[in-house]
C-alpha cells in the first residue's frame, strides 16, 4: 500500500512539474493559448505512442529497440497505400497497418522466445530489418494520407453545452490519444494477461512457478508494443501527411520518458500514465526552448542531453535499489 502511494506520488509530482512548466511557458510567452496547446498535443501524439509501446515491454522486463523503426515502417506503409487511393480505402488501411504492427511485434517476441537470444540483441537485429523494409517500401519521404485521417487530429472537440473558451482547450489529438490508449490499456490492466505481464517483469522464475505462461505472455507484450508503435506510425503519417523511411529520435525519447515516468527499467513496476505525462513534460521543455528563441539545433542538443541525463539518473536509481 505504501508502495502504491509512493508510485502515485511520483505521477503526482510529474503532474506538478507539468503544471509548473505550463506556468513558465505562460510567463515566457504571455500569448500562449489554446491553439499552441493543440499543436503541442499533435506533436506529442507519435511520441506518446512510442512511449506506450516501450512501456508495455519494459514492464514485462524487456526492452524494444525496434520501436522507432517499426513506426517508420508502419508510417511509410500507410502513406504509400493511401497514395492516390480513395478516402474510403483508408478505412481498410488503418486496421491493416495496425494488424501489421501487432504481427511484427509478435514476431519480435517469438524470436526472443525461440532463439533465446537476449531481447536487446533481437530487437537490435529487427531494428535493422524493419529499417531496411521501410526503405524498400519508400526510398524517399513521400506518399499521401486520407483527408479524414488528417482531420481526425486537427482542431478541437466540439462538446455541446460547453463554452468555447473551455472547448478550445480540448484538441482532438489529445482525445484520440486518450481513447486509443484507454481502449487497450484499461482492459489489459484489469485482465489476467495484464497481471501476467507485470508478473514476468517482476520475477520470471516466480511467475513461471506460479503457472504463468511466460513465453506466451512475453510474445503478447511485444505484440502489443508493435500495435502501439503502429499507432505511432499512423499518427506520424497523419500529422505530417507523408511517410518518412528514416526513423525519428523516438527510441531514445521513449526510453527517457519511460524512465522519467517512474517505470523501472528492470520491469514489473509502474503504469502507463506516468510515462505519458513524462512525454508531455519533455515536449513542453522543447516548446519552451523554442519560445526562448534558441537555435533549433541547440535545442536538439539540450533535449538530447536532458534525455541522456534522465536515462543516467534512472539507471543510477535502479542500481541503488538493487544494492539495498
Amino acid at each position: 500500500m505504501n508502495h502504491l502511494l509512493r508510485r502515485q506520488g511520483w505521477v503526482a509530482g510529474l503532474f506538478a512539474l507539468l503544471i509548473a512548466l505550463f506556468i513558465i511557458t505562460k510567463l515566457i510567452q504571455p500569448g500562449y493559448g489554446s491553439g499552441d496547446f493543440g499543436s503541442l498535443a499533435r506533436a506529442v501524439l507519435p511520441y506518446a505512442f512510442a512511449v506506450a509501446a516501450q512501456t508495455v515491454v519494459v514492464i514485462a522486463g524487456g526492452i524494444d529497440l525496434s520501436v522507432a523503426a517499426m513506426m517508420a515502417l508502419t508510417s511509410v506503409t500507410a502513406a504509400s497505400m493511401m497514395n492516390g487511393a480513395s478516402e474510403e480505402y483508408a478505412l481498410f488501411v488503418v486496421p491493416f497497418v495496425l494488424a501489421m504492427g501487432f504481427v511484427l511485434g509478435a514476431v519480435n517476441g517469438i524470436l526472443i522466445v525461440v532463439t533465446r537470444v537476449p531481447d536487446i540483441v533481437v530487437t537490435l537485429a529487427t531494428l535493422f530489418v524493419l529499417q531496411g523494409a521501410a526503405l524498400l517500401v519508400l526510398d524517399a519521404p513521400g506518399g499521401a494520407v486520407a483527408e479524414w485521417l488528417k482531420g481526425l487530429i486537427s482542431g478541437t472537440v466540439p462538446i455541446p453545452g460547453l463554452p468555447d473558451a473551455i472547448d478550445a482547450w480540448l484538441p482532438k489529438a489529445l482525445l484520440v490519444l486518450i481513447i486509443c490508449l484507454c481502449i487497450i490499456w484499461i482492459p489489459l490492466r484489469r485482465s489476467k494477461l495484464g497481471l501476467s505481464i507485470y508478473a514476468i517483469g517482476s520475477s520470471e522464475l516466480a511467475a513461471f512457478r506460479s503457472g504463468v505462461p511466460v513465453a506466451r505472455t512475453r510474445i503478447i507484450a511485444y505484440a502489443l508494443s508493435g500495435l502501439f508503435a503502429a499507432f505511432g506510425g499512423l499518427a506520424l503519417t497523419m500529422s505530417t501527411g507523408i511517410g518518412a523511411p528514416i526513423p525519428g529520435p523516438y527510441l531514445l525519447a521513449s526510453v527517457a520518458a519511460v524512465v522519467l515516468g517512474g517505470v523501472a527499467l528492470g520491469g514489473g513496476k509502474g503504469g502507463l500514465l506516468g510515462p505519458i505525462v513524462a512525454v508531455f513534460v519533455l515536449r513542453l521543455v522543447r516548446t519552451d526552448l523554442t519560445l526562448l528563441a534558441i537555435d533549433p539545433n541547440v535545442t536538439a542538443i539540450i533535449e538530447g542531453a536532458i534525455m541522456v541525463a534522465v536515462v543516467m539518473f534512472g539507471a543510477f536509481i535502479t542500481m541503488r535499489s538493487r544494492q539495498s
Binding site: 524470436l111 540483441v121 529487427t126 531496411g132 524498400l136
Partner: peptide
C-alpha cells in the same frame, strides 16, 4: 537496394548470434 542490404545485415546479426 539499400533496404534489402539492411535487412540482410539484420538477419545476419540475428542468425549468427543465435
Amino acid at each position: 537496394p539499400e533496404g534489402a542490404r539492411r535487412i540482410l545485415f539484420g538477419l545476419i546479426v540475428l542468425f549468427v548470434t543465435a
